Amino acid sequence: MTTYHDLTGFQRDLLEAIAGVDDEPYGLALKDYLDERYADPINHSRLYQNLDQLAELDLIARNELDARTNEYTLTDAGTQLLHRHADRLARFCDQPRPVAGESQQ
């Protein structure tokens, strides 16, 4: 089973982009979504190579929209992976944080 930390940072961002794109999550829409968040433009080759790897890991499904365009959606495994990570982050946020300069007992 693939874990969140088995993926590269870019692959994690792609999963979040697929979940976060409002319209159909096709390649260029995902690129636009990520381009807004990255300092440098996303290379097409990098984008599609990573989408292929995520599909091979069964974290996303690739469906044909038309003869030239694929739509990418999260599989159940991809959705569960993101949910587990979100739950883990939420638990961290609920934990009390030590204040700098206070002694720990």
Rank of each mutant, 00 (worst) to 15 (best):
L34F: 06
Q49R: 15
D76P: 13
V99N: 00
R62L: 06
G9I: 13
D40P: 04
A39T: 12
A67H: 08
G9Q: 13
Y33A: 00
A55T: 04
T79K: 04
D52R: 15
Y4F: 15
L34R: 09
P41D: 15
D40V: 02
R84T: 14
P25L: 00
Q95T: 04
A90R: 01
T79A: 11
L59R: 06
A17N: 09
D76Q: 10
H83V: 12
T79L: 13
D87T: 15
Q11F: 05
R46L: 13
Y4L: 07
E24W: 13
L89P: 04
R46P: 00
N70C: 07
D13E: 12
I42C: 02
E16G: 00
T69E: 06
T69G: 09
L57M: 09
D32L: 13
Q95N: 10
R91E: 15
A90F: 07
E36K: 05
R62M: 09
Y72Q: 07
L65C: 06
D13M: 07
L51M: 04
R84D: 14
A19E: 10
A86C: 02
F10N: 04
A61Q: 07
S103T: 14
Y48M: 10
A61E: 09
H85K: 15
D6H: 14
R91N: 10
D58N: 13
L51C: 12
R68D: 03
A77H: 05
T2A: 08
A17I: 02
D66Y: 10
G20T: 03
L51P: 11
H83N: 08
Y48L: 01
D40I: 08
Y38Q: 10
T8Y: 09
R68E: 00
N50V: 02
L14A: 01
L57Y: 03
I42F: 04
L59M: 11
M1P: 02
E102W: 09
D52L: 12
L15N: 05
F10A: 00
L30F: 07
D52G: 10
M1V: 14
L59G: 05
